[in-house]
């Protein structure tokens, strides 16, 4: 038990260091590129209060080192100040938007990986069979569809031609009460979630199938069958139980891309989560929000990486901390 705690501690330190490096990286990007965000100030119409904020919070206008210190301190303490556009503290915007995104992403990821796990297991087991080939074609196709286009097509089909789903937003305006609001939220999240599920499913399916093929070549599968186990048990107790491990690794590596998918999907469906907020803030040059979201999202990715690593450790006894 001590081993795992030590591992978490070690990884947390790693995360912090990586986070620091990311802040430095973004700062360098923002400071040294030609049309950097500072330069943008030249022709965007910031009010004096906004200028004051920028100076105080981000160190704009100060010499490089001081600027960096100000920036760094504020970013690590999550002190982002107020949004230019909304005028409210950035964290309050994030508090509102983040749960919506987590709901969307969380549900989509869980669903797609569960389906991927189950279908991939069967697809790999009956290699060359109908399910296998269908899964492969499906995965190939959906792996190569641009997320935004898929979103529009689904909107076109199911919110326009056959209007089952709403055209956008995250909740029906004017809704009262917790439960109706929750249902409305789910209803609105449904179409974006379908998009996300389809996209991640492609990757998860393929990977699970490949992983299954690897595992099926292992001797212990033969052993399991030789012991007289039922087909189902061989499949799930032995084969996919091992095949899922690379799936977790891939999940970790694909997190940054899942987040990207969320950004696009939210924008298409006007689903006011973190991704939507990010894109609209960049368009509006709402700097505090842009910085805040960049770092928060990066941090989230890092934290989820850690969760996945721990999960991997739980599932694979060969990994010992």
């Amino acid at each position: 038990m001590g081993g795992i705690l030590r591992y978490i501690a070690g990884r947390t330190i790693q995360i912090i260091i990586t986070y620091f490096i990311i802040i430095i990286f973004v700062f360098l990007m923002a400071s040294f590129l030609p049309s950097n965000f500072v330069g943008l100030l030249a022709f965007s119409h910031f009010t004096p209060q906004q200028m004051a904020y920028l100076k105080a919070q981000l160190g704009i206008g100060l010499p490089l080192w001081e600027s960096f210190v100000v920036f760094f301190v504020h970013m690590v303490t999550f002190n982002y100040g107020n949004s230019f556009y909304y005028g409210v503290p950035v964290m309050s915007l994030v508090e509102q938007a983040l749960p919506r995104t987590l709901l969307l992403l969380g549900e989509a990821t869980v669903i797609s990986y569960i389906i991927g796990y189950v279908v991939g297991t069967f697809a790999g087991w009956k290699r060359g069979g109908v399910l296998d080939n269908t899964s492969i074609y499906f995965s190939f196709a959906f792996y190569n569809i641009p997320t935004f286009w898929l979103g529009i097509i689904l909107l076109y089909a199911f919110a326009f031609l056959f209007p089952i789903f709403p055209l956008g937003g995250y909740v029906t305006p004017g809704i009262q009460g917790m439960l109706p609001a929750f249902i409305s939220l789910q209803y609105h999240a449904l179409l974006p979630m379908i998009v996300l599920v389809l996209i991640s499913l492609a990757g998860a399916l393929l990977l699970m199938r490949t992983s299954m093929l690897d595992v099926l070549g292992e001797e212990y599968i033969n052993l399991a069958a030789a012991k007289g186990l039922k087909e189902r048990d061989v499949l799930f107790t032995h084969a996919s139980r091992n095949a899922i491990l690379p799936l977790i690794t891939s999940f970790i590596l694909s997190l940054p891309f899942i987040v990207s998918g969320a950004v696009v999907t939210e924008t298409i469906f006007s689903y006011q989560g973190i991704g939507y907020l990010f894109i609209s803030s960049i368009d509006r040059l709402d700097m505090p929000v842009v910085y805040a979201l960049t770092f928060i999202i990066a941090l989230l990715v890092l934290v989820f990486n850690l969760f996945a690593d721990i999960l991997y450790g739980v599932l694979d006894p060969r990994v010992r901390y």
């Binding site: 990586t18 490096i21 990311i22 990286f25 973004v26 990007m29 923002a30 590129l33 030609p34 049309s35 950097n36 965000f37 590596l253 997190l255 940054p256 891309f257 987040v259 990207s260 950004v263 696009v264 990010f278 894109i279 960049i282 842009v290 979201l293 960049t294 999202i297 990066a298 990715v301 890092l302 990486n305």
Partner: peptide
Amino acid sequence: VFLSLPFLIFVILLVSLLG
């Protein structure tokens, strides 16, 4: 570090900085 960056977010960030 690079692998942990959310891909699209940073690409967008860089593009809006570069032009």
